[in-house]
Write a protein that binds this DNA or RNA. Structure first.
Lengths: 153, 153
DNA sequence: GAGATACTTGACGTTTACGTCAACGTTGGT
DNA sequence: ACCAACGTTGACGTAAACGTCAAGTATCTC
């Protein structure tokens, strides 16, 4: 077995010697894996895909607070079903430089679409919850029947 | 190009000659692809994975109304992020035969877990919506600034 | 009887998002 | 000096969910 990846779970607070994450100016790859519960491979992969762009100290990656914030967005995006490509696009669209008005309008519309999509998704989930809740009730009914049958023979 | 797959989009109503779907006792594979906008390959794949179990007339698949209903569940499940394997498990768990009480309890718990998961997911989506809405607002702000700058030079 | 049409079974290809493994460099501690 | 920990770059492997293509069968139609 390679010694890489021994993330034992989400380690939110990194012990007494660690400064508060937001106060630190830069993070090692391990820092981020521990804080967010992702593998180093994953972070390198995200970089390869243009989602992160850490500095280098020689060969080593140095993640800034900005990288850390971007990573947060990536993970949030993933959790709601966006692909990495979509997330990258949104990050790029939001990268506030001195954009042209046209670009701003495009970005604005794009965000609108994404929001609309999430809202539809939320509705779908609502329907699914209702469906599953109904199924569960049916099962409850069957259990109740069982118990009545067992009670009076 | 192979002649298979020419689904032009979601065709909800299949024309005048088609009976109301729910009245028909059985469906061809094409019927279902057209009604649900999925490919024939997909339906065969679902069968391979144990999600559907159509009858055969010779070689041809004949889908019952039950198959059709299962397919609906599959698509709903997929739309909220369940894997095909998870969906198969739920379908199996719900297949109301004369189950043992233990099995019913297991099924009940499982459905509870799935519901809880969807509820968490819905929360996540809510947070993501708030986040994206905020980003969009920032972009709106930048647009407004542009316009003020353009108005009084 | 020759297409055209609808269906079938393999079997290999594709995309996404990483995991896994090998081989190597750098640094801190003993 | 040495090794253990942490880091690096390839490069290949994998799982899910199909797509795509080839080759064959059955039926209807002209």
């Amino acid at each position: 077995m390679s010694r890489e990846e021994s993330t034992p779970a989400r380690t939110k607070d990194a012990g007494p010697s660690a400064q508060r994450s937001t106060e630190r100016p830069a993070f090692s790859i391990r820092d981020l894996t521990r804080e967010f519960g992702v593998s180093a491979r994953t972070l390198r992969f995200y970089e390869e895909k243009g989602l992160l762009g850490p500095q280098r100290r020689g060969q080593e990656r140095l993640y800034s607070r900005r990288d850390r914030a971007r990573l947060k967005y990536v993970l949030m995006g993933k959790s709601v079903g966006f692909s990495l490509e979509e997330i990258r696009e949104m990050l790029d669209l939001y990268d506030l430089g001195d954009r042209q008005e046209t670009q701003l309008r495009v970005a604005h519309e794009k965000f609108g679409e994404r929001i609309a999509r999430l809202e539809r998704q939320r509705e779908e989930i609502g329907k699914a919850i209702a469906e599953l809740a109904h199924m569960r009730k049916v099962i409850e009914g069957m259990l109740a029947t069982r118990e009545r049958a067992a009670a009076k023979p």
